[in-house]
């Protein structure tokens, strides 16, 4: 009888002795599905949009620039390797209505176009969700004088719409990749090559590779040729490709880029990239954003 009692008694004893603050601590389970943050440092990569949106009540001011051809017929020392030329200039504001919804306006020198954008985060990567998905739509209104009297039959001929789904994943603190299927809807009047199709599919690929804590290498490539675009066109169109260095300092993000696209917004560069990396058509460019917190969220006490 006593023997039977002693065994569990010692077991209880040893259990009580083994219990200490660390073992109790290890038993406390905390469930916190923190959303993955900063998949990309900025809502824009080189040419494409990333899955990132503005934080709620944050306003970003954008300044973008594309210089002229570095080499080839239009570049070289005559134009100081393209620095004399501005193929596009972009000024814009993006505002975060909520952490998920961003609206923005902008103006480009290219085609003298005004644009409005909307971005909405559908899915957010966390422990259970492998990817983040953001929906992006941008409409552009070309305001330049027509090159010919009948170029734009009606005001609607000046407007185009670009839709894109941005599927992104942060693989590690240093590596993020995105895949961006998109579709451009434009009126026939904006088609530069009469054999080209008005509406174009696009597939973008982009990545960010952190090399230092605040400096990353960024790159994106967009397939336009080889998708819905006809093969035998009169003019040469190329797939937009850009690489750059992204530097982050507090509220600023600087991106110093090289790319073959002359234009900054997707509505312009998806259909109209006529320069290539191989013939000197690559150009320097930059994109700078300054962030302002307009309303501030108080930390909950």
């Amino acid at each position: 009888m006593t023997k039977i009692l002693i065994v569990p008694m010692f077991l209880i004893c040893s259990f009580l002795k083994a219990q200490n603050v660390d073992s109790i601590m290890a038993d406390i389970s905390q469930e916190n599905d923190y959303k993955v943050q900063a998949t990309f440092k900025s809502p824009r990569l080189v040419l494409l949009q990333t899955n990132e949106t503005q934080k709620a009540k944050d306003l970003a001011f954008w300044v973008g620039h594309r210089f002229g051809d570095i080499g080839g017929e239009f570049g070289g020392s005559n134009t100081l390797y393209g620095l004399d030329v501005a193929t596009d200039l972009y000024l814009g504001f993006d505002y975060g209505i909520t952490d998920k919804l961003t609206i923005g306006i902008g103006r480009s020198k290219f085609n003298e176009s005004y644009s409005a954008l909307i971005k909405y985060r559908l899915l957010w990567q966390d422990d259970a969700m492998p990817v983040s998905i953001t929906f992006f739509e941008q409409s552009s209104w070309i305001t330049r004088k027509p090159f010919s009297n009948n170029e734009f039959g009606s005001e609607g001929d000046r407007i185009s719409h670009f839709f894109q789904a941005i599927i992104a994943r942060k693989f590690s603190p240093g590596i993020s990749i995105m895949v961006n299927p998109g579709f451009l809807v434009r009126p026939e009047a904006q088609v530069q090559d009469f054999q080209d199709s008005a509406n174009l599919f696009a597939l973008g690929l982009g990545g960010r590779f952190k090399i230092l804590k605040r400096i990353s290498i960024i790159a994106d490539y967009t397939f336009v040729n080889g998708l819905s675009r006809p093969e035998d066109l009169q003019s040469d169109f190329y797939n937009p490709f850009g690489v750059g260095v992204e530097i982050e300092t507090g509220g600023h993000v600087f991106a110093l880029n090289f790319q073959n696209s002359q234009a900054i917004i997707a509505n312009n560069f998806i259909p109209n990239t006529t320069k290539s990396w191989s013939d000197g058509g690559v150009r320097f460019g930059f994109m700078i954003s300054r962030n302002f917190s307009i309303g501030s969220k108080k930390p909950d006490n």
Partner: peptide, 12 residues
């Protein structure tokens, strides 16, 4: 207070 601060705190 600011969401961007929080991101910088965690990231940088």
């Amino acid at each position: 207070e600011k969401a961007l601060m929080q991101e910088h705190f965690n990231e940088n």
